[in-house]
């Protein structure tokens, strides 16, 4: 399922106009993105949580050519599925 299908399904299931369903989905996603961009955690009960991890840069090598490459520091979010989601998937 993709985002537009998600919006359509939400609109049908809750009887709200498609534009409103789109606003709900976009606000939901944007709130999570903004929080993670600020380095905050996100915790959605029953679904899961996200946190951002910081990785320091290092110089490595291209294993194929042996060339030195500089790996820049980066920030990546990690998702952990919540208990309810895990149980839902497995029964």
């Amino acid at each position: 399922m993709n985002k537009s299908e998600l919006i359509k399904t939400l609109s049908e299931e809750t009887n709200i106009p498609i534009e409103e369903a789109a606003m709900v989905v976009n606000t939901f996603v944007d709130s999570m993105k903004d929080a993670l961009t600020d380095g905050d955690r996100v915790e959605i009960r029953g679904f899961g949580s996200f946190k951002v991890k910081d990785y320091g840069g290092y110089s490595g090598r291209n294993p194929k050519t042996g060339d030195m490459v500089v790996v820049e520091p980066k920030r990546l979010p990690f998702f952990r599925a919540g208990k309810e989601l895990k149980e839902f998937l497995n029964d």
Partner: peptide, 9 residues
């Protein structure tokens, strides 16, 4: 890292 958590509420 500000230590804040965004929740469903």
């Amino acid at each position: 890292m500000s230590g804040k958590t965004l929740t469903k509420a």
